[in-house]
Computed example of a mutant assay.
Amino acid sequence: MSIRVTVWGENVHEQKNRIVAGLYPDGMHSTIATALNRDPGVTATTATLQEPDHGLTPERLAATDVLVWWGHAAHGDVQDAVVDRVCDAVWSGMGAIFLHSAHFAKPFKRLMGSPCNLTWREAGERERLWLTSRNHPIAAGLPDSFELEHEEMYGEPFGVPEPMETVFVSWFQGGEVFRSGLTYKRGAGNVFYFRPGHETYPTYHDSNVQRVILNAVKWAHNPATRIANPNAAPNVPVEVAPEPITERGPRLHQAGEEGFR
């Protein structure tokens, strides 16, 4: 059975910016989903902010093994009820991948429990990504480093919790460095943050970036049965108290008794 992926896109820049529309005429979400669908083990579909429930109904999330999220200009427009639904799905076992400006997405900030803030500069600089965990599954098939000719700079400090592993770090032409590929475990769900992907650059057409996202989908997939209600335990009452223990265990020898050692 293939991994079921939903690629969620804000789909705002594509409607308002001619440069973005030229690079991604069907939306960044469609470009990412098309690349994922080249792998026979993945079935990727898309959802956008503009759909009812932002395309993330309970039924849709129940049928999603891994959610890929890209957002930037409209984080505040995402309904809190949908945020709750997404986080519950992750805690239950759905994988989640947050791309680029999704560091400020409501679900990511909720899952991290931190400000998720950083420094940034949009100057079309070269970015070089270095592998820092060579044998990690997300790094499979990648060179030790690869470059993106033009990208937005993100710089440290990055206000997120310490990750399980840092898979990539980035160097930018202006001299800054950034932790660009971070893994987390939230409940039963695997979470990956990947930095590249500014909308005015062709980042999601890059074969190495596509490989990272595909690898991350396979890493984030949890084949185990979802936890039915991740918020139910352990905060539940115990209705019947156990029977009290009335029998004593073996009596300890007192000093001076026969057999005492």
Rank of each mutant, 00 (worst) to 15 (best):
L252C: 11
R121C: 13
G159M: 08
N190M: 03
E122M: 12
D144L: 14
H13M: 14
G22S: 10
K16L: 15
T6F: 03
H29Y: 07
R226K: 15
S101N: 11
A216I: 02
P237I: 05
S114K: 14
S30P: 03
N229W: 11
A255Y: 12
H54L: 02
Q50D: 14
V236I: 12
E156F: 09
Y154W: 08
R211F: 03
H136R: 05
R251E: 13
D84H: 09
D65M: 04
G27M: 06
P52L: 02
L129K: 02
L23S: 02
E122H: 14
M1N: 09
P196S: 06
H75S: 08
R195A: 15
V12T: 14
H198M: 04
I138H: 00
L131I: 05
V169L: 06
T166A: 10
A241Y: 07
G189T: 05
G187Y: 03
S145E: 12
L36D: 00
A216S: 10
L99I: 06
K218S: 01
N17T: 12
G181D: 04
V68S: 03
E257K: 07
K16D: 15
C87W: 06
H103M: 12
V238A: 09
L67T: 00
T166F: 05
F192Q: 02
V217T: 00
A139M: 05
R121Y: 14
G41M: 10
G95M: 02
A140S: 12
P52H: 06
S133W: 09
V238F: 11
P107W: 03
P230F: 03
R226F: 07
R126Y: 03
V240A: 12
L129Y: 06
V169E: 15
P230G: 04
R126E: 10
R121F: 15
Y24I: 04
P250V: 10
T57H: 04
W219V: 02
A63M: 08
W8F: 13
A102D: 04
L56A: 02
T34L: 09
A63F: 06
V177S: 15
W130I: 10
Y201T: 02
S101M: 12
W120T: 10
R4L: 07
S114H: 08
P143C: 05
G259W: 01
D39C: 08
C87M: 05
A188L: 12
C87E: 11
P234I: 01
G9V: 08
R60W: 02
E125H: 10
C116A: 12
A33E: 00
A89M: 05
A62V: 05
T43S: 14
A123E: 13
C116H: 04
R179H: 13
L252V: 10
E59D: 11
V240C: 10
R18T: 12
S180D: 07
L61W: 00
E257Q: 14
P237N: 08
A47E: 01
A63K: 13
F178K: 09
G256M: 07
E51S: 07
A105D: 11
V217Y: 01
N208E: 13
